[in-house]
Nucleic acid binder design. Sequence first.
DNA 1: TGAAATGTTGGGGCG
DNA 2: ACGCCCCAACATTTC
Length: 459
Amino acid sequence: MKKGLVWIRRDLRLHDHAALSAATKECDEVSLVFVFDKKILEKLEPEDRRVSFIYEALLEIEEKVGVHTLVGDPIKLIPELFKKLKIDHLYFNRDYEPYALKRDNKVIREIGNVSTYKDSVFFEPHEVLKGDGSPYTVFTPYKRRWLEAFLNQGKNISDYKVNLNKIKKGNSKLKLELFKKMGFQKTQNTLVGGTSKGKKLLSSFGKKIANYDKTRDFPAMEGTSNLSVYIRFGCISIRDMIRLSLKNKSSGHDIWLSELIWREFYQMILGQFPHVVKKEFKPKYEGIPWSGTTKEFNAWKEGRTGFPIVDAAMRCLNETGMMPNRLRMVVASFLCKTLLVDWKKGEKYFASKLLDFDLAANNGGWQWSSSTGCDAQPYFRIFNPYSQSQKFDGEGEFIKKWCPELSSLNSKKIHQPDLADMIELAEAGCTLGKDYPFPIVSYTKSRQKALKMYKKALS
DNA sequence: TGAAATGTTGGGGCG
DNA sequence: ACGCCCCAACATTTC
């Protein structure tokens, strides 16, 4: 009798799962294990929402099968469990983050009988390369090649079927005590973990995906899918997502697929250029003398910069753990190029707050915003928070939702309350400096400063 | 997946 | 009718 162990990590689901599929095919009996990694937990706040999201996803798995849920160092715990359960073979899906690669290699060396699988991406970092075998550093040609490779294999998307009958049942040991053991608190999130919620969102997004290209940039339209956190933790598979993009033909479907390719692009960049984790992708951008102050950084974090669209977006992030992509670009550009704060600080803050935080995507996005990345926008491309606000939240609906103190201002002045005269402000019941802050910097002056700073650093 | 500055064009008002 | 000016709208370049 062959016994298999499947180590679940960022693939918290029981369907279309490469490692699980292989294990249930090859083995007579399969056990599941998930490890809350102490090294990762140590860096989190005790009320981190993602721990709750994972817990909820595990609960749902436990309704169907057993899963050994452990807390500690996986490099020790996985081999221990392997021995204890007298397992013959370990299965898991590959992860391309530097920390994960190191960890996984140690486990592989320790155990020996291990098979790993491609599961979290459609093409792995080494699979989409330039003609000469080197990696792409610009998105557009990468995407062209990605699509070409995709179409060459006939849009054929495998579905890794899992035989649930082979998986050992559990006795629902997973309890809230787990949080105590870890020193964490259960949180109530707007997005609840698990495959069933993920699939629900996937199908409701299916109804509006045709308009995705026209609505996604307008936060009040809620045109985005909110699926990022479900794909991040693998409650749904990347193949689930790609299948949706192929279900019909429209520019919405195309742009959606394109966003999935962005995801793989940054996974590839991280895999091929792991230095991006610590440093600027482009070395010549390393010495920028960021002059933003802690005070300004804190105002950004807390959503009290006096720039309504920025503050609304940051309050949304703090409250929900999510932020629409357009606004991620706006607040990132604002931090680097208006407040002149090091992008790495913003990256770190996003990492601590975003439910869907993914090292590759987050790092790629911040490097892009700060112009230090691959596929760099030139440094002089600076977002104007006022025009972005007018363009994408014209009526100020999103601002009103998160900055209610501004909700009585008209749709002209809500983007820049300091332009309103005393009478307008009095009528709106909003005193600047009291109910809502004055802008902490002047956009125009900051822009000039940023241009000078970048220019000097590059010369 | 920008924005501002600068340049060009063309229509309308007006002497 | 014509030239001139103004300026909006659009195009190009510059940061």
